[in-house]
Each structure stands twice: as C-alpha cells, then as structure tokens.
Amino acid sequence: MPLLKTFVAAAAATLITITGAAAQQAGGTAGNPYRVMLVPADGGTEDGTKADFKPVFDAVTQTTGIHFDIKVGQTYATVIEAICSDVVEIAWFGAASYLPAQQRGCAELLAVDVNHGTSTYYSGIYARKDSGIAAVTDLKGRSMAFGDANSTSSFVYPVAMIVAAGLDPATDLTAIRMTGSHANSLKALAEGQVDAAAASFDSFEKAINQGTISAEDFVVVGKSDPIPNPPLAMSTKLPQEVKDALRGAFNTVHEAPGVSPEMIRGYGGKQVDRYDATVTDAMLAPALVTLSGVSGDLRASILEKAGN
C-alpha cells in the first residue's frame, strides 16, 4: 500500500534520532521501568503531552507497582521507529501512526480511553472569524497549516475533508505549512501566519483553556466524522504475561483504591471515565478507510508544496 510505504520510509528516516542499536527490554521495576514514548500531539513539551498522560501512568504504578519512564517523541515517525527498534515497550499513537507499526509487526493495542461510553474524537479545520472563510470550499486560494504528516487529526482527516469538498490541497491552497503539531498549527493561525489550520477538537479546546488562543476569534469551518481515539500500544515482543498484566492494569485502574477520578486522563489531558483494554484492531477500521483515501501521491504532493 503506497501510504504505508510512505509512513514506513518517514519512520525509518528518523532512526538515527533515536538509537543505532536496540536497547535491552525493560522489566517494569523502579530501576528498570517500561519505556513509554508519546506522539507530540500538543507540541511535545514537558508541560504538554507528557503531563496529559503522567497521571494515569502514575495511577497504574500506584496500584500495581509497575513503573514507567515516559518521554515524548520529536515527531510521530520517531515514535513509530522507537517501538519497532525495541527502544520503547509502550507507545501512544494516533491511528495513522499506529497502523504502520502494527503492520510491521512491532505493536499491538494495549488500551484506549473511554468517556461517556465512546472512544472517538474529532478533527477540525479552523479560521479566524474575520478571514471570510466560512466553509471548507472557501479555503481555495488561501494558506493553511497542518501538524505532522503522520498525524491522524492534524493531517489525514483534514486533507480528506478538503478533498471531499472538491479541492486539491496541493494546487488549491496557495501555501502549506507543516508545523509538526496541533499546538503549533493553532499558534500559526493565531499569529496570522496562515489563513486556516488543522487540529483535533481536543487540542483546540486545550489551547482555549490554556489561554493560548481565544474562542471568540475563531470559527470552525470543518468537522470530521468520528475518529477512533488514539490508542496506547505495546511491543509485540513483550512476554504474554506482561501484556496480560498491562492490559489488566489499565482496564481496572479507574476502580483501584486510592486512585482519584482526576488521575484517569486521556488525549488532551481530559479526565475520562476509564480505559478499555479489550479494544481490537477492528476499532480502527474507519480510520483505515480514510487513510486509504489520502494516497501516497496526494500526501507527497502536499509535502512537496510545503517544502517550496
């Protein structure tokens, strides 16, 4: 599949940023914790993505004695290669970055967060209210910021929305900026560097809550279909008893004594009801359909324009 080959090539290109050799697998003890890497959904800062997930990992440690060392990858491709090179045992992906790792035989699902009975979220395209952009079709002749090219909700789904509106992003947008994250794209929009930006609704809401942007200044010009929540995944090389222990830990952590509801956090740092460790790859089927529509050639043409 061309799209998968493109993702794999991008991930392989970042190998030198991680390590030249596979590290010894960790054991989950305080001295040898399981290594976790998160995709940089909100900029990849210590007070961003890492802080979003630290509470739930701390809760698992508190209730099971399993320890974790959490880091944030510089790019989505870095995280793909990290789990495929045995540099980490656990990773947090979007659907667009999990699928290449799963198809390479590196990763399998661990758990996904559930809130109000659902495990879905939304991608959006945003513009300033004074821009005159009221619909996705109005993006013709305008500039736009996307996040990481391996991101489900800051690239794949927004591109699909633009194509569904009858536009070709590579020719109908006057300029394209690849910013690397949702937060950076929203920042570029807020500073007037672009006319529109792509990001998840979770990231948009988080930026508003943090005061980075003002809700009164922006309009949502496009909202995606429901997207499967970004899953936690684990290395296929872990022993089965370890996989079972991790799934059991995340599946029950919300019920554990001493764990407060505020510790059960998901994407964007939002408090969620629980984690579901019975999730299967079939959950990602809707995302796979959208991924197949954003072909390797289309993706390549967008990245080429962004590089000019």
Rank of each mutant, 00 (worst) to 15 (best):
L4S: 15
Y126G: 10
I162W: 01
N32I: 04
F68W: 06
E304C: 02
P257F: 15
A23S: 12
L4H: 14
N308C: 00
Q74K: 10
A233S: 09
G48D: 13
R247M: 01
A10S: 11
G166Q: 02
G31F: 01
L291H: 10
G124T: 10
G307A: 12
E205K: 04
Y121E: 12
T75I: 01
V36R: 08
L109Q: 01
R104Y: 10
D138S: 08
D52E: 15
T64W: 00
D52S: 07
G258P: 09
V294N: 08
A256E: 14
S97Q: 03
L284E: 04
M1R: 08
A30L: 11
D148E: 01
I66Y: 03
E81M: 14
I208H: 13
I18F: 00
G141I: 06
S185A: 15
L3N: 13
A190I: 07
G65Q: 05
I176W: 00
A285C: 05
K187L: 11
G211Q: 09
F155E: 09
I133N: 05
Q24D: 09
N251V: 00
V136L: 15
D217Q: 14
A196E: 03
K237R: 11
K54N: 10
E108F: 02
P228W: 12
N209V: 03
A277I: 03
A149I: 07
A160T: 01
S200A: 07
D172S: 11
M234Y: 13
M161P: 03
V36H: 02
G180L: 07
